[in-house]
Simulated scan of single mutants.
Amino acid sequence: MKILSWNINGLGALAKGAQIKDLVRKVIPTLICVLETKLEVIDRFTLKSPGVRGDWSFSYVGSNGASGGILVAWDELCWISVDELIGNYSLFVVLQRVEDASKVVFTGVYGPSLRVENRRFWEELNVVRDWWVFGWCIDGDFNEIRFVCERSGCRRSTRNMIASNDFIAKHELVELPLARARFTWNRGESQSRIDRIFICPGWLNLVTDVYQRSLIHHCPILLDPRLESWGPPPFRFEIAWLQAPSMKERLGEWWSFVKSEGPLDVVIGCKLRFVKKKLREWVKEKRALDQNRK
């Protein structure tokens, strides 16, 4: 199962259609999820824009004018559609694998940009998910981060961040690590991680890779079981750093700097990520000073 997901910010534009078509030819996915299509109606002719062949089926959520829109398309040589449900913010498709007749639920989501709609968004996902017991993969643009460190300039947790983590914990979802990228959206100096893929624990043999394009604000995400990279190497703390002048005081200041709310594991995770970031900056500065002394 190879899934390509991309917030294209307007599927009807010729330039963007060419970009996604080029990527589809390179990675050859078996399922495509295109977000923010900005199209109220999608037909077979429109489906040619992402570069899919004639032996593909699709379902979609029409946009609200020039806002939103979800397209999910799958290769009929690999998948057979069994059931589906179209929501306001999501598209649930139950697919049966041709190879072994196993069934999975794939959900493409486009989260609301207005805070007043956040509660309805999570309620929709919770209610519909309970209809099926098959393995689940939920993918899309959630328009929200999970941790403070996932958005530049963010220092406090919000209610929707807490709601998103509660939802993940309730359904025992696993978020796959991103390779080759830390953020999935950028505009100027603003960066955040709002495009995500979650799977049920039974799919932990799958990994995710990210291909970034400088011409767009969202980068596409590729989920491929054959990829071996789990992203950059893990960060390692060197005990010798504690011998540096005022290091213990610095660690205390960095740890106290992040004011986060929510479950204890979420709070600790945010603090650790911030401390890791500051340590990397400190190490970089230290190496530069050592080089100048030489």
Score class of each variant (00 low, 15 high):
residue 196 R to N: 13
residue 189 E to Q: 12
residue 204 L to R: 10
residue 184 T to R: 09
residue 229 S to G: 12
residue 249 E to F: 01
residue 219 C to S: 15
residue 196 R to D: 10
residue 194 I to G: 05
residue 230 W to C: 13
residue 169 A to C: 08
residue 233 P to A: 07
residue 254 W to T: 04
residue 168 I to S: 11
residue 192 S to G: 01
residue 244 A to T: 06
residue 256 S to G: 02
residue 244 A to C: 04
residue 178 L to Q: 09
residue 175 E to Q: 14
residue 169 A to L: 11
residue 253 E to F: 01
residue 240 A to S: 11
residue 228 E to H: 11
residue 218 H to G: 12
residue 193 R to V: 15
residue 203 W to A: 11
residue 247 M to R: 01
residue 222 L to N: 08
residue 232 P to M: 04
residue 218 H to Q: 15
residue 259 K to Q: 10
residue 236 R to I: 11
residue 217 H to A: 08
residue 251 L to V: 15
residue 204 L to M: 05
residue 232 P to D: 15
residue 234 P to A: 12
residue 226 R to V: 00
residue 238 E to K: 14
residue 241 W to R: 06
residue 197 I to G: 03
residue 198 F to P: 06
residue 243 Q to I: 00
residue 206 L to D: 01
residue 188 G to E: 01
residue 250 R to S: 09
residue 188 G to R: 04
residue 258 V to E: 06
residue 254 W to P: 00
residue 168 I to T: 13
residue 223 L to R: 06
residue 229 S to E: 10
residue 245 P to N: 06
residue 257 F to K: 09
residue 171 H to K: 05
residue 210 V to I: 13
residue 203 W to N: 10
residue 196 R to G: 10
residue 244 A to L: 10
residue 176 L to P: 00
residue 237 F to W: 13
residue 197 I to S: 05
residue 212 Q to W: 09
residue 227 L to K: 10
residue 229 S to T: 13
residue 208 T to Y: 01
residue 176 L to Q: 08
residue 250 R to F: 09
residue 222 L to G: 15
residue 222 L to C: 14
residue 239 I to H: 01
residue 251 L to K: 08
residue 237 F to E: 01
residue 224 D to Y: 00
residue 242 L to S: 13
residue 190 S to W: 00
residue 225 P to Y: 04
residue 199 I to M: 10
residue 175 E to F: 09
residue 171 H to N: 14
